[in-house]
Deep mutational scan, measured.
Amino acid sequence: MTYKLILNGKTLKGETTTEAVDAATAEKVFKQYANDNGSDGEWTYDDATKTFTVTE
């Protein structure tokens, strides 16, 4: 399945997607991506749209 990440950071904004077997796997990928790019904030997940959002 395709999962989407929306970044609403102070310095990093945008979207990216990943293919993953489940939401937990996608979350690990996205959290590593956000960490690698210095983005940290409040995470939410919408199962209906398969979208993670991180807001700083």
Score class of each variant (00 low, 15 high):
Phe30Lys: 00
Glu19Gln: 14
Glu15Gly: 08
Thr55Lys: 06
Thr16Gly: 04
Thr49Trp: 03
Ala23Glu: 06
Ser39His: 15
Thr2Cys: 14
Val29Asp: 04
Glu19Ala: 07
Phe52Glu: 00
Glu19Asp: 10
Leu5Ser: 01
Asp46Asn: 08
Lys28Ala: 12
Leu5Phe: 05
Lys28Asp: 05
Thr16Leu: 15
Gln32Leu: 08
Gly41Trp: 15
Lys13Pro: 05
Thr55Ser: 09
Leu12Pro: 06
Tyr45Glu: 00
Glu19Ile: 15
Gly14Asp: 09
Thr18Arg: 04
Leu7Asn: 02
Val54Thr: 02
Glu56Arg: 05
Asn8Leu: 13
Asp47Thr: 07
Ala34Val: 15
Ala24Met: 11
Asp47Gln: 09
Lys4Ile: 12
Gly14Ser: 14
Asn37Ser: 09
Asp36Met: 12
Glu19Arg: 13
Thr16Cys: 15
Glu42Pro: 03
Glu19Leu: 14
Ile6His: 04
Leu12Gly: 12
Ala48Val: 10
Phe30Arg: 01
Thr55Gln: 07
Lys13Thr: 09
Thr53Trp: 09
Asp46Lys: 02
Thr16His: 14
Phe30Pro: 01
Asp40Gly: 10
Leu7Phe: 13
Lys10Ser: 11
Val21Tyr: 11
Ala48Ile: 11
Asp22Asn: 08
Ile6Arg: 04
Lys4Ala: 03
Met1Trp: 13
Asp46Phe: 03
Gly9Ala: 06
Met1Asn: 14
Met1Pro: 10
Thr44Ile: 08
Glu56His: 08
Lys50Arg: 14
Lys13Tyr: 12
Thr53His: 06
Trp43Ser: 00
Ser39Pro: 06
Leu12Tyr: 14
Glu19His: 12
Ala26Ile: 02
Tyr45Val: 00
Thr11Arg: 10
Tyr33Ser: 01
Leu12Thr: 12
Thr11Cys: 15
Ala23Trp: 13
Met1Ile: 14
Trp43Pro: 00
Ser39Val: 15
Phe30Asn: 00
Glu15Pro: 05
Tyr3Cys: 04
Met1Glu: 14
Leu5Ala: 02
Thr11Gln: 09
Thr2Ser: 07
Glu27Leu: 15
Thr53Arg: 06
Thr16Gln: 09
Asn8Glu: 08
Glu42Gly: 05
Thr11Phe: 14
Glu56Asn: 07
Gln32Trp: 05
Asn37Gln: 13
Lys50Trp: 05
Ile6Lys: 06
Ala23Ser: 08
Asp40Cys: 13
Tyr33Gln: 03
Thr11Trp: 13
Thr17His: 08
Gly38Glu: 06
Asp47Ala: 14
Ala20Ile: 01
Ala26Met: 01
Tyr45Cys: 00
Thr49Met: 05
Gly9Glu: 05
Tyr33Trp: 14
Lys10Asn: 11
Thr16Trp: 15
Tyr3Phe: 13
Thr53Tyr: 12
Val54Asn: 01
Trp43Val: 02
Asn8Thr: 10
Tyr33Ile: 07
Ala48Asp: 10
Thr51Phe: 01
Thr44Gly: 06
Thr51Arg: 02
Lys31Phe: 05
Asn8Asp: 08
Asn35Leu: 15
Leu12Gln: 12
Thr11Ile: 10
Leu5Asn: 02
Lys28Gln: 11
Phe52Asn: 00
Ala26Gln: 00
Glu42Ile: 14
Leu12Arg: 11
Phe30Gly: 00
Leu7Lys: 01
Thr2Asp: 06
Val29Asn: 05
Asn37His: 14
Leu5Lys: 02
Thr16Tyr: 15
Glu15His: 10
Leu12Asn: 11
Lys13Trp: 11
Ala34Gln: 03
Phe30Met: 02
Asp36Phe: 11
Glu27Phe: 15
Ala20Cys: 06
Phe52Leu: 01
Gly14Ile: 15
Thr16Pro: 02
Thr51Ala: 03
Lys10Tyr: 09
Thr51Gln: 03
Ala48Trp: 07
Asp40Met: 13
Trp43Met: 05
Lys4Trp: 10
Lys50Cys: 05
Lys4Gln: 05
Glu19Trp: 15
Thr25Gln: 13
Val54Phe: 12
Glu19Thr: 14
Thr17Glu: 07
Tyr45Pro: 00
Met1Phe: 14
Tyr3Trp: 05
Glu42Phe: 13
Gly9Met: 14
Glu56Ile: 12
Gln32Ala: 11
Asn8Phe: 13
Thr16Met: 15
Val54Trp: 11
Asn35Met: 15
Gly9Ser: 08
Gly14Trp: 15
Gly38Met: 12
Val29Ile: 14
Thr44Asn: 08
Asp40Thr: 14
Asn8Cys: 15
Trp43Lys: 00
Lys31Asn: 03
Leu7Arg: 02
Gly9Cys: 15
Asn35Tyr: 14
Val21Asp: 09
Asp40Val: 14
Asp47Leu: 06
Glu42Asn: 09
Trp43Arg: 00
Glu42Thr: 13
Glu27Trp: 14
Thr53Ser: 05
Lys4Thr: 14
Ile6Ser: 03
Thr25Asn: 06
Val21His: 11
Tyr45Ala: 00
Ala26Arg: 00
Ala23Tyr: 13
Lys13Met: 09
Thr17Ser: 10
Thr18Asp: 01
Gly38Asn: 10
Asp46Glu: 06
Met1Gln: 14
Met1Ala: 13
Thr55Trp: 10
Met1Val: 13
Thr49Asp: 04
Asn8Met: 14
Glu42Asp: 11
Lys50Gly: 04
Ala24Glu: 11
Asn37Pro: 03
Leu5Pro: 03
Asn35Thr: 12
Asp46Ala: 03
Lys10Phe: 11
Thr18Ser: 04
Ala48Leu: 11
Asp47Pro: 14
Lys28Arg: 13
Val54Asp: 01
Asp22Thr: 04
Ala34Cys: 14
Asp40Gln: 13
Thr25Tyr: 06
Ala23Thr: 07
Phe52Trp: 06
Ile6Trp: 03
Val21Met: 12
Thr51Leu: 03
Val29Cys: 07
Lys28Cys: 07
Gly9Phe: 15
Lys4Ser: 05
Thr51Lys: 02
Gly41Gln: 05
Gln32Lys: 13
Tyr3Pro: 04
Asn35Pro: 03
Tyr33Lys: 02
Met1Tyr: 15
Val54Cys: 08
Ala48Cys: 09
Thr51Glu: 03
Gly38Pro: 02
Thr55Phe: 08
Thr55Arg: 05
Glu56Trp: 13
Thr18Gly: 02
Glu15Trp: 14
Phe30Tyr: 01
Ala24Gln: 10
Thr55Met: 07
Gly9Lys: 06
Val21Glu: 09
Asp36Ala: 12
Lys28Phe: 08
Ala24Gly: 07
Thr44Leu: 07
Thr17Met: 08
Asn8Ala: 09
Asp40Tyr: 15
Thr16Asn: 05
Thr16Asp: 02
Thr49His: 04
Tyr45Phe: 05
Asp46Gly: 00
Ala24Cys: 14
Phe52Lys: 01
Ala34Glu: 02
Leu7Ala: 04
Thr18Met: 09
Asp40Ser: 13
Thr2Glu: 08
Val21Asn: 09
Lys4Val: 09
Thr11Asp: 11
Tyr45Trp: 03
Tyr45Ser: 00
Thr11Ala: 09
Asp22Leu: 02
Lys10Thr: 12
Thr51Gly: 01
Ala34Pro: 02
Val21Thr: 11
Asp47His: 10
Phe30Gln: 01
Thr53Glu: 04
Gly41Arg: 04
Ala24Lys: 10
Asp40Leu: 12
Thr44Ser: 12
Ala20Leu: 01
Leu7Pro: 01
Glu56Gly: 07
Thr44Lys: 08
Asp46Trp: 02
Lys4Asp: 04
Ala20Pro: 01
Phe52Val: 02
Lys4Cys: 07
Lys13Ala: 07
Asp40Lys: 14
Lys10Val: 13
Asp22Ser: 06
Phe52Cys: 00
Ala24Arg: 09
Ala20Asn: 02
Glu15Ile: 13
Thr55Gly: 05
Thr49Gln: 06
Asp47Arg: 06
Lys28Met: 10
Ile6Leu: 06
Val54Ser: 02
Thr25Val: 07
Lys4Gly: 03
Thr44Cys: 07
Asp22Pro: 01
Gln32Met: 08
Tyr3Ser: 03
Thr11Lys: 12
Thr53Met: 09
Tyr3Val: 04
Tyr3Leu: 02
Asn37Cys: 14
Leu12Asp: 07
Leu7Cys: 11
Phe52His: 01
Glu56Gln: 12
Asn8Val: 13
Lys50Tyr: 08
Tyr45Thr: 00
Leu7Glu: 02
Lys50Phe: 08
Lys50Glu: 02
Val21Gly: 08
Lys31Asp: 01
Phe52Arg: 01
Phe30Trp: 00
Gly41Cys: 06
